[in-house]
């Protein structure tokens, strides 16, 4: 009879020991391990992001003076336009404040905008996340809303010392309260598993029966203040069709999101100036 070689079982024994150790290990040690390894590799991502910035800088330096003058002129035009918009915005805000004080309405949540560079994008069948170059060093809170020039990007799910991880609006784990721009009633937006090939989509549920959407006049889905995380009126996407949902009472449909979500370079984190106190505040 062949002699049983116990040394052959070493890897299996090690695997078993690891499994048991991992199972009984306190979460605080696992958390410590994760944070240590994450923080250890974070500088490499931050450095590569800065290198990309330098690369962009040198690429722009290679432009001719004529091109730069043209770009400056275009920028000056846009600046003048935005100055006008800012003035109008100021007067409208003053008007809104006045009306709110007359009607004794509760104060709205105010946010500080923290602009951050995207250092990495992890968009796959399993996860839809990006990493930005700001973390605890800029007081980024977990759960904060993240937006870009075309609307909602997602929510901060993990904050590290110099980086933060953001769950994108395309992720099936992302869910938020929303409304249609032309209708004040709340609906639920949720990310879905992406079908790929550069098309970003989501889903809308609990839409009232009387809302009609078609591809000629798609409905714009915007954020609402109901969740407490996002300010109202931010674009989420457009809805081209709605059909009866699984309950039959409400409608559901597909939300077409901005394709630029898949190639973001810069985003803004909305940091609440007066954070919600869950014991006292009702969102």
């Amino acid at each position: 009879m062949a002699k049983l070689r116990l040394d052959k079982l070493k890897p299996l024994v090690a695997l078993g020991v690891f499994l048991i150790a991992w199972w009984i290990m306190p979460p605080v040690i696992k958390s410590f391990l994760k944070i240590s390894f994450t923080e250890f590799q974070a500088p490499s991502w931050v450095v590569s992001s800065y290198l990309e910035d330098i690369q962009g800088f040198w690429a722009r330096r290679s432009h001719s003076k004529i091109e730069l003058i043209e770009a400056g002129r275009e920028l000056a035009r846009k600046k003048a336009y935005y100055q006008y918009i800012a003035q109008r915005n100021e007067s409208l805000e003053a008007e809104v404040d006045r009306l709110e004080s007359i009607l004794h309405m509760p104060t709205r949540r105010e946010f500080r905008y923290e602009v951050a560079r995207v250092v990495r994008r992890d968009l796959s069948a399993w996860w839809q996340q990006i990493i930005i170059r700001k973390g605890r060093d800029y007081n980024i809170p977990e759960g904060a809303a993240v937006i870009f020039s075309s609307g909602v990007v997602g929510r901060v799910v993990e904050v590290n010392a110099f980086t933060s991880r953001i769950e994108l609006v395309t992720s099936p784990n992302f869910r938020m309260a929303a409304t249609f721009e032309t209708d004040g009633r709340p609906v639920i937006y949720q990310g879905v598993v992406q079908s790929g090939f550069g098309r970003a989509t989501g889903s809308v549920n609990d839409a009232p029966q009387d809302i009609i959407a078609n591809s000629q006049a798609p409905l714009k889905l915007v954020s609402t203040s109901l969740g407490g995380t996002f300010p109202p009126g931010l674009t989420i996407g457009t809805v081209s069709w709605l059909e009866p949902g699984s309950t039959g009472i409400f409608q559901a449909g597909e939300v077409t999101l901005d394709e630029r979500l898949l190639s973001l370079h810069e985003v803004s984190v909305l940091i609440p100036l007066n954070p919600l106190e869950l014991n006292n505040d009702v969102p």
């Binding site: 992890d122 968009l123 992406q194 898949l262």
Partner: peptide, 10 residues
């Protein structure tokens, strides 16, 4: 992967 994200490839 980060560079391929705009084509939804991983």
């Amino acid at each position: 992967n980060s560079a391929l994200s705009s084509w939804s490839l991983y």
